[in-house]
Amino acid sequence: MDYRKTKEQRLEEDRVDELLELIWMLIEDGEATADNIAGKSEDPLASSLLKDIESLGLISIDHHSGKVTFKEGGKIKAEQIIRRHRIAERLLSEVFEVEERQIEDHACELEHTHVLGQVVVDSICTFLGHPPTCPHGKVIPRGECCKKFSLDVKPLVGALTDLRIGEEAKIVFISSKYHARLDRLSSLGIIPGSVIRLHQKQPTYVIRIEETELALDKDLAKEIFVKKI
């Protein structure tokens, strides 16, 4: 946080942040054109702001198709905003259990650099077990902490394999790169939000969900991240 900046400067920074965030999300959806961005932005002066950040070298606008892409600097900046926003969403939904429709507003306030600094974001990320996605399923850009997987902060959210036998926990996210795995688990009711109880770890993991007992491999259990109740 930089206290030397004036209030006006900070306000200006917030506007840029909001626009970069919007561009990132529209690029994710494959709809990032200048018109689209101006149309969807809540900033009344979005069009001119877009030109400003283009001249700052953060983005480039294809003047033919109107397609907007990030330049290196803009990408890094936007990535950090998105990361802060989505980590904040996770924090609010998992730890504070804020109601879903309020999460968005609060997360928007937390996403700015002068509110949540890098170190704090990484600590929260670690605390949450390095979640790969926000509660809405959108990807959270990885930070330095995720690469190191540092254990300085005791995580609140850990793999199912870290639970002790007999403990109950709520599934926070499932981090698997295999589509078939996610499909199969979800068809058995294993999705974020479900409450499970670890029954045994050997010879395979056995969990109880509702009135069903499910046996599963350790490989799978490792990818299910839970929060103790």
Binding site: P132, G137, D183, S186, I191, P192
Partner: peptide
């Protein structure tokens, strides 16, 4: 492309 997670998983979640 608009989702990080597979659509089948997302659809299942909405249903559940």
């Amino acid at each position: 492309d608009k989702y990080y997670e597979p659509l089948g998983y997302i659809i299942n979640q909405i249903r559940l």
